[in-house]
């Protein structure tokens, strides 16, 4: 499956990545090679094989609804670059 220049720019925009103009073609080639390698799988006849959503053959790994202590607020905010009013302050979004 061929990757186009537009595909690269679209995926980069969704991932908030800025790819310098001179590198777009290189990224396009690399992504194309990865897809081509993965695409090898589609050469096999897999009609009778169940899709795999997880490598472990397990279901229902869950926990009971019992509370455990949360972090103290100072600790929760310790890595926040700009805390204010007990909250994570962020630049105005979408405004």
């Amino acid at each position: 499956m061929a990757i186009t220049r537009e595909d690269v720019l679209h995926v980069a925009a969704l991932a908030r990545l800025e790819i310098p103009e001179g590198e777009v073609e290189g990224v396009r080639e690399q992504l194309g090679a990865i897809l081509e390698a993965v695409g090898k799988v589609s050469e096999l006849d897999l009609a009778d094989v169940e899709p795999t959503s997880h490598p472990l053959d397990l279901v229902n790994q869950w926990a009971e609804d019992e509370p455990r202590p949360s972090l103290p607020r100072e600790e929760a905010l310790a890595n926040a670059p700009d805390p204010a009013d007990g909250s994570f302050r962020v630049p105005a979004v979408g405004g």
Binding site: A84, S87, F88, R89, A92, V93, G94, G95
Partner: peptide, 10 residues
């Protein structure tokens, strides 16, 4: 949202 200076996340 419109015109807000900043946002606080809880």
């Amino acid at each position: 949202i419109h015109g807000a200076e900043y946002s606080l996340v809880d």
